[in-house]
Design a protein around this nucleic acid. Structure first.
Length: 436
RNA sequence: GGCGCUAUAGUCUAGCCCGGUUUAGGACGUCGCCCUCUCACGGCGAAGACACGGGUUCGAAUCCCGUUAGCGCUACCA
């Protein structure tokens, strides 16, 4: 599953080479992540190269977004990124050199690399082990296109050599490109780096990852309320395993124990359920204070919570963080705390508020709590239990109608905590309305 | 079609390199029970896998071959 091309310490240089023609794809993020971890583990250098050779499709806003998302994930780079769009003359010079040396030819404005006669190219892949290709199966390769822009496989080699990249970890979709690139290294008189090809991430149905699988870009997950720690942790486990049964782990921990030998060579399906579970774990474990700014962001996007005190938000965060899989779930779950315009579960109303018996119980409970001086969760619960005892009914017969009356829902935080947070006036008002 | 990669439960995986210690371990999901005012959390438990066929061997999830299936490349996309 692996070979012995383990890098010497401090000497390794890796790169992540995004193309700014769209948002940061979840698969690209994973590639960046593994390169970064590899570099950090060996004390090497992690570089960024911008592959913007497609001048018409490349946009500055995409590049900004990609860099923002990388940082958000916790991936930082060590040197100023280089842009391929600024190096067209370098690629042309190299292509010119190969043509002059008889390794290629011109075809109009284009520079083409001539495939050598039958030869076997062997790649000692860090993940797959030995893989071999026959040059007979590969046709002549374009180096510089007619429009003057370089072809991917060619400028990739020129730049990786220029950047002194020692290890290339990338997706399996590049495995078949590797012999072509090795031939370029040879022709240019350069030493080829080590290669490691990670299996691609597929959607749940085995098809290419797409929107309907839950999102393809990091930005979408960020917006949905996923924590970077959770996304990174999940991506880490997709194609790599520490060897023991550890699952929840920080980036720092992963850097420490990382070993490319444990990288998997099997394509993996993206499982949104597991990501959601993991995200829930991270949310629940975070301090409410840490979560607060993120919760505020969610509220802001939804247009709720304006002018609400920090204290109340903190309290709600505390009550609900254990019930959320994503931050985005906070708003619909707590809408009844932010004004009277909240969603109502009609089926719940039918079941718990419609019966005359429920209304009577609700009225009685309302009368009791209205008279009470203390509106704390503990004393409310005491009153509820006492009333149940007196009336020879189950506490649930009071609790369920009350919950629906004040929240419109059958789910959520503990009833008495909710009542305390909402306050006496609001609670009594909603209960009277429901009982009428 | 050609070339390449891959193949443990619905999903991610451990075990495979160095064959016996495996009644194949863990996690998500599913189901059941407990806790409980609901939901969630937590606890306990259950169902569920070595793709198929040959071979090597006393013995194969582990090694070899084939078949099948999935994916990738086969662009003057990256």
């Amino acid at each position: 599953m692996s070979n012995d091309n383990t890098p010497a310490k401090n000497a390794i240089r890796v790169r992540f080479a995004p193309s700014p023609t769209g948002f940061l794809h979840i698969g690209s993020a994973r590639t960046a992540l593994f390169n970064w971890i590899f570099a950090r583990h060996y004390g090497g250098t992690f570089l960024l190269r911008i592959e913007d050779t497609d001048l018409t499709r490349s946009e500055a806003r995409f590049l900004d977004e990609i860099m923002t998302d990388l940082k958000w994930l916790g991936i930082n780079w060590d040197e100023e990124p280089i842009h391929q769009s600024k190096r067209f003359d370098v690629y042309r010079a190299s292509a010119e050199e190969l043509v002059k040396a008889g390794r290629g030819y011109r075809e109009g404005e284009a520079y083409i690399f001539k495939m050598p006669g039958a030869r076997v190219i062997e790649v000692n892949d860090m993940i797959h082990g030995k893989v071999s290709f026959n040059t007979n199966d590969i046709k002549d390769q374009v180096m510089i296109k007619s429009d003057g822009s370089p072809a991917y496989n060619f400028c990739c080699v020129v730049d990786d050599a220029y950047l002194k990249v020692t290890h290339i970890i990338r997706g399996d979709d590049h495995l078949s490109n590797t012999p072509k690139q090795i031939l370029f290294y040879e022709a240019l008189g350069l030493k080829a780096p080590e290669f490691g090809h990670m299996p691609l991430i597929m959607g749940a149905d085995g098809a290419k990852l797409s929107k309907r699988h839950g999102g393809v870009s990091v930005e979408e997950y960020k917006r949905e309320g996923y924590l970077p720690e959770a996304l990174v942790n999940y991506l880490l486990l997709l194609g790599w395993s520490p060897g023991d049964n550890r699952e929840i782990m920080s980036l720092d921990e992963a850097v420490k124990i990382f070993d490319s030998k444990n990288m998997n060579s099997v394509q993996a399906k993206f499982d949104l359920q597991k990501l959601r579970w993991m995200n829930g774990e991270y949310i629940a474990k975070k301090g409410s204070g840490e979560l607060l700014p993120l919760i505020k962001e969610q509220l802001k996007v939804s247009g709720r919570g304006e002018g609400v005190s920090e204290e109340l938000l903190l309290k709600l965060t505390d009550l609900y963080k254990i019930r959320m899989k994503t931050l985005a779930e906070f708003v619909p779950a707590t809408d009844h705390f932010f004004g009277d315009n909240y969603s109502i579960d009609e089926k719940a109303v039918e079941k718990h508020l419609k019966p005359a018996e429920s209304k009577a119980i609700l009225r009685e409970f309302t009368d009791r709590i209205e008279k009470a001086g203390n509106f704390s969760a503990a004393s409310l619960e005491e009153m509820c239990r006492a009333m149940a005892e007196e009336k020879k009914i189950k506490a649930g017969q009071i609790i369920h109608p009350t919950r629906v009356a004040i929240s419109g829902k059958t789910t959520g935080a503990g009833l008495f905590e909710m009542m305390e947070v909402l306050g006496k006036a609001k609670v009594v008002e909603r209960m009277r309305k429901a009982a009428s």
